[in-house]
């Protein structure tokens, strides 16, 4: 019976994450539009796009992997989200947090991309492999500073359990990793820019360059699954960063405010800078954020 209640809680939690992730996407589109001097689409536009994509009457497929690509991607998003405790102290939003879940979450962040690479490759469009090559290379490079930051955090709290890390940051703003281990937060926030794939790191979906990128052949429900995952995975990443570096959240409104503010960093930088070329982006991640990540480990081990 216990596991049944747990499953119901997980379903509620996933739905809340999807809705919040998609709403965030809508808000961000609105912000970008205002920066451009436009009025912008309504905040609920991502939901309408998903309804529209599901409403397609015919849908073309290119083979089994083409079916499995979006499924893997969604599975990756679901896996990432389900092992992160969203709200500290809440039973409904605790998800399946356990000892060592941080490693599992980092694995799942990579997993979805690899699945998508297999699926999109079967589409046969030349832009798909181009986007995949860019995406996976960039992913490998921004994983490096992120992993260093996570190692620094693990050394600091002597744990790989996200719940323990959040618990250690309770009791005041100065207990946050942001203040106790600032170098790790800087390195991780720079790698978050790459993860969120806003400009200047928007290499994968790069409009005007390789339009749409890997999912270029995805249509109908395939695309709708990817769009749903964008909401879920987006929310999961932000919640992970909130837990690791910004003290977690004790209730839903705090979670919303914190994730929005973390996302806003990407949006401000995205709205102000043009896009990097692929090699510039890779070199950038391997240079400064990596050095800052190494400094953070030295800082937390010896000072």
């Amino acid at each position: 019976m216990n596991i049944l209640i747990k499953i119901i809680y997980a379903i509620i939690s996933v739905i809340v994450a999807i809705v919040w992730g998609l709403t965030l996407g809508g808000i961000v589109r609105k912000i970008y539009a205002r920066v451009h001097g436009r009025y912008g689409p309504p905040i609920w536009q991502p939901f309408l796009d998903i309804i529209k994509s599901h409403g397609k009457r015919v849908s073309i497929s290119h083979g089994i992997m083409f079916y499995l690509g979006p499924v893997f991607r969604f599975g990756g998003g679901l896996g990432t989200y389900l092992f992160i405790p969203v709200i500290y102290g809440s039973t409904v939003f605790a998800n399946f947090s356990m000892a060592g879940d941080l490693l599992l979450v980092m694995y799942f962040i990579f997993f979805g991309q690899l699945g998508m690479a297999l699926g999109a490759g079967e589409g046969g469009h030349p832009y798909s492999p181009l986007g995949i090559a860019r995406g996976l290379s960039q992913m490998s490079t921004f994983e490096l500073p992120f992993s260093l930051a996570v190692i620094a955090v693990a050394i600091q709290y002597n744990s790989l359990n996200i719940t323990t890390i959040v618990a250690a940051q309770q009791g005041g703003i100065l207990n946050w990793t942001l203040f106790t281990n600032p170098f790790a937060v800087i390195a991780a926030m720079i790698s978050l820019l790459g993860m969120n794939m806003h400009s200047p790191f928007s290499l994968v979906l790069a409009p005007q360059e390789i339009p749409i990128g890997p999912p270029i052949e995805m249509n109908g429900s395939f695309l709708a699954t990817l769009q749903t995952n964008r909401g879920l995975f987006g929310a999961a990443k932000l919640v992970l960063f909130m837990n690791l570096f910004f003290g977690g959240a004790t209730n839903l409104p705090i979670m919303m405010i914190k994730t929005f503010l973390i996302y806003l960093v990407s949006v401000i930088i995205g709205a102000s800078f043009p896009r990097f070329r692929p090699e510039q982006s890779f070199r950038f991640f391997l240079k400064w954020p990596t050095i800052i990540g190494i400094i953070s480990i030295i800082f937390i081990s010896y000072f």
Binding site: R29, A33, G40, P41, P42, Q45, L48, I216, E217, N219
Partner: peptide, 15 residues
């Protein structure tokens, strides 16, 4: 600004 009506350009015929 046509995006306020939920209309957007898409570079691929599939979507």
């Amino acid at each position: 600004d046509i995006s306020r009506y939920g209309i957007a350009g898409r570079p691929t015929p599939r979507q």
